[in-house]
Design a protein around this nucleic acid. Structure first.
Lengths: 148, 148
DNA sequence: GTGGCTGCAAACATTTTGCATAACT
DNA sequence: AGTTATGCAAAATGTTTGCAGCCAC
């Protein structure tokens, strides 16, 4: 199957009986063309850069819809209070958050799948999603920290 | 060492030069005597039940302080927007969140330690904390869902 | 006594909602 | 044309902050 960022949103929307509108396209473009997780405010700014004029409320509504379509997902990282969003990549990944610089790294690998397999079925629990966030210090911040 | 819920908060505070106050004791009691993760609002309600009269702002401030002392930690679960808090149990555990009933299960086991070992040191990243949340459907909700 | 802490209220930040209008099909 | 979705503004939620007075030390 194609990569998720090449999905035809218009078709996806129509297939489910939703209308194709500017805000929905705008939010999808914003997510699709920027990798990593964006705050809602950041997404709104990006839609503006892309030439759309979208209200904040519509960004929220579009994000919820994209989530329902399985195209996007919310992720809450570390202590950050702001909700962040990213494409719902089918390859499961986890996040490394540096306590020093706040940098967030995506890591892809078998780890998340292993966790899923490990937990799925145990105690009758059917796993749907695995959210793994590892906090710590990246190489650079460790060095800077030592120097202080 | 003693279990975390038997720690003498007064001593802990004094050792770090903080004052021993009612709100701090109240929040500590609330966390200590209720297992699982509580919303801030829930914690405030519990302090009231315990006979304290604590302002919301003070609950927030006390929680931040407990976190700094390493006695409590914030955990953001699944889609829930509200911040939740729990004792900083030294044994690492992860959360199972049911998408149906919202029930949250704590699971203790070697899994989190394995993840830590797996990630620690890779790419020069020094792991400090591992936050793992698995969402899915518990046995009961799976059944109810099928029936609908 | 004095400086840290609290309570209160107001400010903030984020997300949700009601409703008249615009726009997709 | 008929609705669904949008924009706007207001409300709801959750959390933080400024400040005068109180209380632990």
């Amino acid at each position: 199957m194609d990569a998720i960022d090449e999905i035809d949103l218009d078709a996806e929307l129509r297939a489910r009986g939703y209308r194709v509108t500017q805000p929905r396209r705008a939010v999808w473009e914003a997510l699709r063309t920027a990798d990593g997780h964006l705050t809602v405010e950041h997404i709104t700014a990006r839609t503006a850069e892309l030439g759309y004029d979208v209200d904040l409320a519509s960004v929220y509504r579009s994000l919820d819809l994209l989530a329902e379509l399985g195209l996007a997902r919310a992720s809450r990282l570390g202590e950050s209070e702001a909700g962040r969003w990213e494409l719902a990549h089918p390859d499961e990944h986890f996040h490394l958050v540096c306590a020093g610089c706040g940098e967030v790294d995506h890591h892809i690998g078998s780890l998340v799948a292993e966790i899923r397999d490990h937990v799925d079925g145990a105690h009758g629990f059917a796993v749907e999603g695995v959210e793994l966030t590892v906090t710590g210090w990246c190489a650079r911040c460790r060095r800077d920290r030592r120097l202080r």
